[in-house]
Design a protein around this nucleic acid. Structure first.
Lengths: 122, 122
DNA sequence: CGCTATATATAGCGACACTACGTATGGGAG
DNA sequence: CTCCCATACGTAGTGTCGCTATATATAGCG
């Protein structure tokens, strides 16, 4: 049991707070994707550790679009409508900022949390 | 201007969500501390990057105590009352779990965020 | 003909850190 | 001696934001 979800040690599901936008932007960096594909991309690149519910992904994409970080366009593929998103210039800048911010944040937390400073690759 | 605070790139202040408890427990690992000292310890060990407001620290400590992860005792030092906290056994276990969880979480985010996988020590 | 995967959407909830206060003492600056 | 700041604790209320639950619709498989 408990093989799915964000973590095997379910501390808090809200650990994602504040980092989601960057993840979504990163998933769109390699090229346009529609919402469901973004969700799958995040799941696949993290070996299933980041399996976000659709109720998280879609509203977040809407916010990003409204913020001008991505642009979306409708299309129909195989009878199913899709909204395909693409990074804007602002989106790319924001992604870069999100990466910087993550580095700083992760370094600070890792330092304060102590134990093993950084995860050994082994 | 803007030399203080959690980050030089203020993304979201709620980035802490779900990680605070572990940080507080870690600050108590080396020995008992009172609330204000915990706040200072986190600020100092992170070079001022993690300067939590008292309105964040104290309620969190109360929660941890109610959860049985720390125990507190009153004392008076220099006319000022202090509540000194100490890790319980459950607290130590929880801290270990928090570290594990952080490693997994950080690895997943770093992977999904891409860019530089892990910060080079140099 | 269900059942699952694909694909999108939203209303309401809940968790939790933060803002903005309030209380009180000790010590240094003026 | 009197501000004012650092120390030291506290809480009520706020706001953000990811999640739950639910809804719609098509394609394909058994």
């Amino acid at each position: 049991m408990e093989r799915a979800g964000v973590a095997l040690l379910p501390m808090r599901a809200e650990a994602l707070k504040g980092h989601l936008d960057g993840l979504l932007l990163a998933a769109l960096e390699d090229g346009p994707r529609h919402g469901y594909a973004v969700k799958e991309a995040l799941r696949d690149t993290t070996d299933g550790r980041l399996d976000l519910p659709t109720g998280t992904v879609y509203p977040a994409l809407h916010r990003l679009e409204q913020a001008g970080l991505i642009t979306g366009s409708w299309s129909v593929v195989g009878g199913r409508r899709r909204r395909t998103y693409e990074l804007t210039e602002d989106g790319r800048r924001s992604l870069a900022g999100a990466r910087d911010h993550w580095q700083e944040f992760a370094a600070a937390i890792s330092t304060a949390l102590g134990g093993a400073p950084w995860p050994a690759t082994s």
